[in-house]
């Protein structure tokens, strides 16, 4: 539940927007980051943007997620993962 994902804000209307991470898009709220703009990369946690991050930091995390996904497939193919929020 404590996991947050960096994503780019690609649409924004007031405090409701759409975020994109590695091609996945979903609705987010930016209520906690009043100054955020389209194009900013933010850390999304449980549907809310909680901090802005730079491109380099986001890229490192996206790479790490890809690695973890690969590792999980290799190590524990039968285990169920709950939706991390």
């Amino acid at each position: 539940m404590c996991l947050a994902v960096p994503a780019r804000i690609v649409e924004l209307m007031d405090d409701r927007g759409v975020a994109d991470a590695m091609g996945n898009r979903w609705s987010v709220r930016t209520t906690l980051l009043p100054d955020v703009q389209v194009g900013d990369i933010v850390l999304i946690h449980a549907g809310f943007a909680i901090a802005t991050v730079d491109e380099e930091e986001a890229r490192k995390t996206w790479e790490l997620f890809a690695e973890i996904a690969e590792f999980q497939e290799r190590q524990a193919p039968s285990s169920k993962e709950e939706g991390t929020v």
Partner: peptide
């Protein structure tokens, strides 16, 4: 439920 990360939401 959750800590300070989910409470603002």
């Amino acid at each position: 439920v959750g800590f300070e990360t989910t409470t603002p939401a």
